[in-house]
């Protein structure tokens, strides 16, 4: 199954290049946000996820063509 993902904030180390905004990946059907995070070695407690523009819980089950955004927030700027 194909979905799109974006990493923001401190998570940009999981991009393939610094300016990458979005990439498509293949995942097994029925995978949860939590499962995807595990595959990247990211602690689910520290990350926020938005799926198709809405904040979702890590138990959310991913569907074909979903667009998933992972972000962390800092307080500088």
């Amino acid at each position: 199954m194909k979905i799109s993902i974006s990493f923001y904030g401190n998570l940009i180390i999981h991009r393939t290049e610094a300016n990458e905004l979005k990439r498509q990946i293949q995942i097994p059907g029925g995978m949860t946000v939590s499962g995807l995070l595990v595959s990247y070695g990211i602690s689910e407690k520290t990350v926020k996820a938005v799926c198709n523009g809405k904040k979702v819980d890590v138990r959310h089950i991913l569907m074909e063509d979903d667009y998933l955004q992972f972000y962390s927030l800092n307080s500088g700027g």
Partner: peptide, 24 residues
């Protein structure tokens, strides 16, 4: 905005893990 750490930095437990390296 630089008066104190923002709430979103400390609203999660401190076990970010090495791959995250984020604020917590």
């Amino acid at each position: 905005h630089l008066v104190a750490a923002h709430d979103v930095v400390i609203d999660h437990p401190g076990d970010a893990g090495p791959k995250f390296g984020g604020a917590d």
